[in-house]
């Protein structure tokens, strides 16, 4: 079936089986490789993207549900030249190690800050439940608090 949506601000149409996981539409049809495959079972969170501003795990999101919706991936969150506050904080705290799970974490964090601009440690624990095998959680927590500060100061200025 033909599925039309907006991704990172651009209108796109793809022709695929409606049950194809959105993850593979993003990675293999649209060549946006920042969204990662980890488990394919919505368990690890490496494939987290935003659909209409909400965090969703794209490995478990059938392409048909994307019709008419707005998708944001890590490539649309920000760029090296113009990073999103979450990416900026990740750079400042030097969070990534292997880096594979990080886009999923950053997408989940960006959604969290949209809902809870100044998350407490408990908010972070309840919302950021992706899996990182390198164990970068300690720096991520610092980066999430830092991102909240950056985002607030950006809004204020």
């Amino acid at each position: 079936m033909k599925i039309s949506f907006s991704i990172n601000g651009q209108k796109k149409s793809v022709e695929t089986d409606g049950d194809t996981p959105l993850l593979w539409v993003i990675r293999d049809m649209l060549d946006l490789k920042g969204t990662k495959f980890g488990c394919g079972k919505a368990a690890c969170g490496a494939c987290t993207v935003h659909v209409d501003g909400e965090s969703i795990r794209s490995c478990s999101f059938a392409a048909k549900w994307a019709e008419g919706r707005e998708i944001t991936t890590i490539e649309g969150l920000g760029t090296a030249e113009d990073p999103h506050p979450v990416q900026q904080a990740w750079i400042e705290e030097i969070v990534p190690q292997c880096g594979y799970c990080q886009p999923g974490f950053m997408m989940a964090t960006a959604a969290l800050l949209d809902k809870v601009p100044s998350p407490t440690d408990e908010d972070i624990d309840n919302n950021i439940i992706n899996v990182c095998r390198c164990g970068t959680y300690y720096r991520m927590r610092k980066a999430i608090h830092r991102a909240a500060e950056i985002k607030k100061s950006n809004t204020n200025t």
Binding site: K36, T73, T79, P96, G99, P103, M106
Partner: peptide, 21 residues
Amino acid sequence: IPRIDLVDKVVGSPIFGMDAE
């Protein structure tokens, strides 16, 4: 020194085995 792969890993550059095409 900040990791030299830091920015690539923060913007989601296609650097991993699974990203190869």
